[in-house]
Write a protein that binds this DNA or RNA. Structure first.
Lengths: 229, 229
DNA sequence: CGTTGTGAACTCATTCACAGCT
DNA sequence: AGCTGTGAATGAGTTCACAACG
């Protein structure tokens, strides 16, 4: 298991958003699918994730040449390469704004830190909520955001505020230097180009589900069993 | 259950998953964007949602011819048509299995019923949880699922169980007659073709965010500001 | 052999650009 | 004049199929 040279992997490779999602899925699947010898084939990954084997090979080839023809992919180096490509070969610091029910669930979500994300700050405007403690964190007032965010050097923001407050909150976070937002509010955020947004919109997902079911009625051939978004 | 006449809208139109998501977004945008006279143009919708105007026209044309050339789209009939296409021109009944923190947040989520989805049952296996009341619902034991689900005629299932339990739970729901699943557990569910699955996978979304930020560094041209997906 | 990596073909989605209505 | 609907052009993403290689 000679992590060979793999030196200056010059080509930090950009892939499409959809491809990045598939990479995440391969990452998760690789561990559990690995046959005893620490190897996986494109076929195994393919049906763990629900895509074609050709798709898997194409995706993995784009990440770097890490398969052995006739053999398969070494799980350890494969996952390392995917992590590097996705930018999850490090930890990320995030703050969360809007401490409602959803926020409380997120704070307690273990997978969060298990995947390399550390929640380092909670903020809210409501006086009843500010000062309370959730998990290990004390909720701070929004007024402290800028200063506090400087201190804890978070680069990501999680928005669990009501729709009406979302845009303003996003702007505050961006002004405070955040570079990416995960938005749970049902609105489209307008942010500068250098800020990334991932939206998790439950209402839209519900409608999507209704749509799929609605049609699996009328004609039994809509595809099923895929991820999100 | 005679889905009424529905005059001659012969073409119950099937669209791609991505297109369906955009339709949801137009639906949401239409209300707020409507100029006083109850009309919207493709351009207005386009920049409310963040897609091109041509895209909007293409999408809306596929739903039915409901624009007036030279005028725009009538918000009322537009939203009605989109709702019909998405299958959200009716209410849907859903049960939820796995009453943890996330479930509690979902139960209290108002948008749920506001969008036409009624939560009609909660189930869990843990004796400490069974029998407690959340919102207006009493948590029932999994053992009752089949019978209880028959009674309350739910057609959708929401999975907020731990990853290990997800597949088995999905199977129980499917066996009990559910036709669509919203899966919050970080695993791919294997279900029969006639059952639709929408996955909401936070870990993958987080990695997506990391990826986008990671690269907005290295080259400032990755697209941002889109939904999910 | 078995399995990857990849040109070439193909399919699906998006944009262009303009004819067609109002 | 303004804005939609849509053929045609383009582009992105996926699958085919096979050469390359351990």
């Amino acid at each position: 298991m000679v992590r060979v040279v793999e030196p200056l992997d010059s080509s930090e490779n950009r892939v499409s958003r959809a491809a990045a999602q598939r990479l995440s899925q391969y990452l998760r699947a690789a561990d559990s699918v690995a046959s005893g010898d620490g190897l996986v084939s494109s076929v195994e990954l393919a049906d763990a994730v629900g895509v074609s084997a050709a798709q898997v090979r194409r995706d993995l080839a784009s990440v770097g040449h890490l398969g052995q023809r006739g053999v398969g992919y070494d799980v350890a180096s494969l996952t390392a390469a995917i992590r590097r490509t996705l930018g999850v070969d490090r930890r990320w610091r995030a703050v969360l704004v809007g401490v409602g029910n959803l926020a409380r669930a997120l704070v307690k979500y273990r997978g969060f830190s298990a995947h390399g994300f550390d929640l380092v700050g909670l903020y809210d405007t409501a006086p009843r909520i500010v000062g309370t403690t959730i998990g290990e964190l004390r909720v701070e007032p929004m007024s402290q955001l800028a200063e506090s965010l400087k201190r804890n050097r978070a680069e990501l923001g999680i928005l669990t505020v009501p729709a009406e407050a979302a845009q303003a909150t996003a702007e505050a976070l961006v002004a405070a230097g955040v570079r990416g937002l995960m938005n749970f509010a049902p609105v489209r955020l307008r942010v500068p180009d250098h800020v990334a947004v991932v939206a998790v919109d439950l209402a839209i997902q519900l409608q999507q589900l209704a749509y799929l079911v609605h049609f699996s009625d009328e004609s039994p051939d809509v595809d099923r069993t895929r991820l999100n978004t």
